[in-house]
Amino acid sequence: MAGFDKALKYLKDHRGEQVSVRLPHWTQDVDIRLRTAQDDRQTRDAGQPTHDYLTAASRYGFIPWIPTQIELLSDDWQLCDITGRVIAE
């Protein structure tokens, strides 16, 4: 079983690889991803984030995501590869 700490570490360790994490009771097309901020201040638009952030991804797109207490304390996070296939629970 993976707690949120392991799920977040997985996302950080695979930064830039399009991996994701999810909870098993969520709709199949919903997962959490780590989006990276653009590092180059010369090419970054004023509205772009300056730090990495979590997003919820679905068939509708991406939105910034902050976990709830229930999600933070869940021990059943699934770690997914780039195709969305669960590789660890």
Rank of each mutant, 00 (worst) to 15 (best):
H51D: 14
I82P: 00
P67W: 05
Q69A: 14
A2L: 10
S20Y: 01
P67L: 06
A57T: 11
K9I: 09
D40I: 09
G47Q: 11
K9L: 13
S58C: 11
L72Q: 15
H25F: 09
D52C: 08
I32V: 15
I70S: 14
K6W: 00
L34V: 08
E89I: 06
G16A: 03
I32M: 06
Q18D: 15
L54N: 05
Q18L: 12
R33Q: 15
D13N: 15
D76N: 15
R15L: 12
D5N: 13
Q38M: 14
G47Y: 08
K9Y: 07
I87P: 05
L54F: 06
W65P: 01
T27K: 13
M1H: 10
A88K: 08
G47V: 00
H25Q: 11
C80P: 01
V30N: 01
T50D: 01
K6N: 10
R35D: 12
S58G: 09
T50P: 04
P67V: 05
L73C: 06
I70C: 00
Q28D: 14
Q69C: 13
E17G: 05
L8S: 06
W65K: 02
R35K: 11
T27P: 06
L23P: 00
D31P: 01
Y60N: 13
Y10G: 04
R15N: 09
Q48C: 05
A56S: 12
D45L: 15
F4P: 02
I87S: 06
Y60F: 11
T36C: 11
I82H: 14
G3M: 03
D29Q: 06
L11V: 02
C80Y: 03
C80M: 01
K12A: 12
W77I: 02
L23T: 04
G61W: 06
H25W: 00
P24K: 08
K9N: 07
G16K: 04
V86T: 13
R22A: 10
L23H: 03
T83K: 00
R44L: 08
V86P: 07
T36A: 08
Q78V: 04
